[in-house]
Design a protein around this nucleic acid. Structure first.
Length: 295
DNA sequence: GAAACGTGGTT
DNA sequence: TAACCAAGTTT
């Protein structure tokens, strides 16, 4: 049995029943799930994905609504620029691909918000192509099982893609199965903090395990602060704007944060990023038409 | 390559 | 409780 075959066998017996894994899921459904799952846990994505797909079953449906609606629908998934990019994706797909999610990897990668991981994930899971699909789970699993290292680097490198490519079966369908299996093992068993090695299909051959599971020695990565950052202030501002039914006066936004300098920086940042638009002395979510709001 | 970018649950 | 962690992308 190869590593990939072991992984597939484990996946067949242990995979979670997630809605976007249903065989009738469209490429659009796969894309939406992949974008939502960028840095957001599965448990929070699941209900959001269902609601999103019900409202916008196709790229054309989303493209017909303003970005503000996408930002609202995004709710509290975090990184709301993803909602904006997904909307931009939908518009681009209508303009360039007849409203379809492209199957060509380069065309996928050209879409806003679609990077190395997401592009390959869609090409693989939605279209059955053979590509290395490398996310943080896969990097950790391969790092441990194959390379014997306790953890992987923070970002996917060309070397990571090449290493995973070597592990994939030549058959595209099996390769796709192996990729989702590697991810699932990383998510459920070979976890970052407390791996459940006793339940791991690679237990007997895992290089890290065979080496005594040495801990990470090097300098730990920088802790990600949140409290007091611009990100928090942006979040607070956006929270107000999401719930607003019309333009929000700047005086209202001034209430979310006392530090005027930081508040102004956060607001202008949101405007620069295209999430928010000024409207007179007020502000609205991008694409929100004040005329419509009055109705 | 580092830093920015949200949010909430777990340890 | 502070830090860690969660299917990354962009600049």
């Amino acid at each position: 049995m190869t590593l990939a075959e072991d992984a597939i066998a484990w996946y067949d017996a242990n995979a979670r029943d997630l809605p976007w894994r249903q065989p009738d899921t469209t490429p659009w459904g796969v894309l939406v799930s992949e974008v939502m799952l960028q840095q957001t846990p599965v448990v929070r994505v699941e209900p959001a994905w269902r609601a999103w797909m019900t409202r916008w079953p196709t790229p054309a449906a989303l493209a017909a609504d303003p970005p503000s609606e996408a930002i609202r629908m995004w709710g509290r998934l975090g990184y709301p620029r993803r909602a904006m990019r997904l909307h931009a994706c939908a518009v681009a797909m209508v303009e360039r691909h007849g409203g379809d999610v492209p199957s060509d990897l380069d065309q996928l990668l050209a879409l806003p918000g679609v990077g190395t991981y997401t592009g390959r994930a869609v090409a693989t899971f939605a279209y059955g192509q053979r590509h290395p699909v490398v996310d943080t789970n896969v990097r950790r699993v391969v790092s441990r099982a194959v390379e014997g290292k306790p953890d992987a680097g923070p970002n996917t490198t060309a070397a990571d893609l090449a290493a995973v490519e070597e592990l994939l079966p030549s058959d595209a369908a099996k390769a796709a199965r192996a990729s989702i299996a590697f991810m699932e093992i990383g998510a459920l068993v070979c976890t970052a903090r407390s791996p459940r090695c006793a339940d791991c299909p690679f237990e007997a051959i895992c290089a890290w395990r065979l080496d005594g599971s040495p801990p990470l020695d090097g300098p730990s990565r920088k802790p990600q602060r949140y409290a007091g950052t611009d990100r928090q202030v942006r979040g607070l501002l956006l929270e107000v704007l999401r719930h607003a039914t019309g333009p929000v006066p700047k005086q209202r936004l001034d209430l979310v944060w006392t530090d005027e300098v930081q508040r102004a920086r956060a607001l202008s940042g949101l405007v620069e990023d295209g999430l928010v638009e000024p409207f007179g002395g007020s502000f609205v979510l991008a694409g929100d038409s004040p005329e419509v709001q009055i109705l």
